[in-house]
Every structure is written in structure tokens, then in C-alpha cells.
Amino acid sequence: MEKKVKQSTENFIKDIRRKTRRIFSSEQKIMIVMEAQRGESSVAEICRNHSIAQSVFYKWNKEFMEAGKKRLAGDTAREATSDEVADLRKENQRLKEMVADLMLRYTIVKKSLDMLD
């Protein structure tokens, strides 16, 4: 019996931690990493000021540096090619036409049913 109570208590605490965890925007992460790049404060002090673990800071720093390295190396490939974009636009137009057709049919059916009443 004690095991179930302890387990549920631990899960409860984990749920609270998960729900109250702060989410940093990409801009906030960049500002924190750039603060360390300036060298005016130690990493430990910056982490204390922003209430983050040093491991989190170093993860952000690594991601920031890798993204910069890729950008400087000319890795600017787009995620969608122009052919894919054109195909998506055609599909979008086709779907819009289908929706318009369905709305028109719906209106006609609704009016015919109103006339029966």
C-alpha cells in the first residue's frame, strides 16, 4: 500500500515540475548565450541569474554555434524546393475549390429543405 502512495506522490511531483517548467523562446536562448559570449560574467553566474542548469546552457551554446557554423559554411538549403512549393500551391487551390463546391451544395440542400417546411 505504501508503495502505491509513494509512487503516485512521485508522479504528482513530476507532473507539477513538468507543468511549471519555464519555456524559453529562441530569442531568450540567444540572449543568454550571447551574454556568455561577451565574457562579462561567468557561465555559472549567468545560469544562476536565469535559473537554468549549466547543462542546459551548454546545450543551447552548442546548438547556437553549430547553427552559425552551418550558416557560414553556406548550408542554406531550403526545406522545400520550388517544384514542391508549386505542387503545394496547386493542391491548395484544388482544396479551396473543393471547399467552395461543398459549401455551394450545402447551401442548395439547406434552401431546398427550408422550402419543404
Rank of each mutant, 00 (worst) to 15 (best):
L113C: 05
K90D: 06
K110S: 11
Q93H: 10
A73F: 06
K19C: 05
K96F: 02
R18C: 09
K6T: 14
S42G: 15
R71G: 06
S112R: 11
K59P: 02
Q37N: 12
V43I: 15
K59Q: 15
I30F: 02
V85P: 00
W60K: 13
K111T: 06
I108V: 15
W60A: 09
I16K: 15
E27V: 14
I32L: 14
I32H: 01
K70D: 12
M31P: 00
D83I: 06
E35L: 08
A53E: 15
L113P: 00
K70I: 00
S26V: 09
N11Q: 07
Q93C: 08
R94Q: 14
S51D: 07
K96P: 02
L88G: 15
D15S: 14
N11P: 00
I108S: 15
R48A: 06
R94S: 11
I52V: 08
E84W: 05
E10A: 11
R38G: 15
E84M: 08
K111P: 01
K96Q: 12
K14H: 10
K59C: 14
M98F: 06
D75R: 11
I52K: 02
K29E: 14
E97T: 06
S25N: 09
I108P: 05
S82Y: 04
L116M: 07
I52M: 07
A77P: 01
K62D: 05
V99Q: 09
E35K: 15
H50V: 01
V33T: 04
T20H: 03
I16S: 04
A77C: 07
M65P: 01
Q54S: 13
W60G: 12
T20V: 03
T9C: 03
S51N: 13
M1E: 07
T81E: 04
T9Y: 03
E79W: 10
Q93M: 09
K29A: 01
F57K: 12
S8V: 07
S25E: 12
I108W: 13
M1V: 06
V56G: 00
S51G: 00
R78M: 05
I30M: 05
R22W: 06
E2W: 07
M115Q: 04
V43G: 05
V5S: 13
G68H: 04
T76C: 10
R18G: 12
S8M: 08
R89A: 08
A44F: 10
I52T: 00
L88D: 13
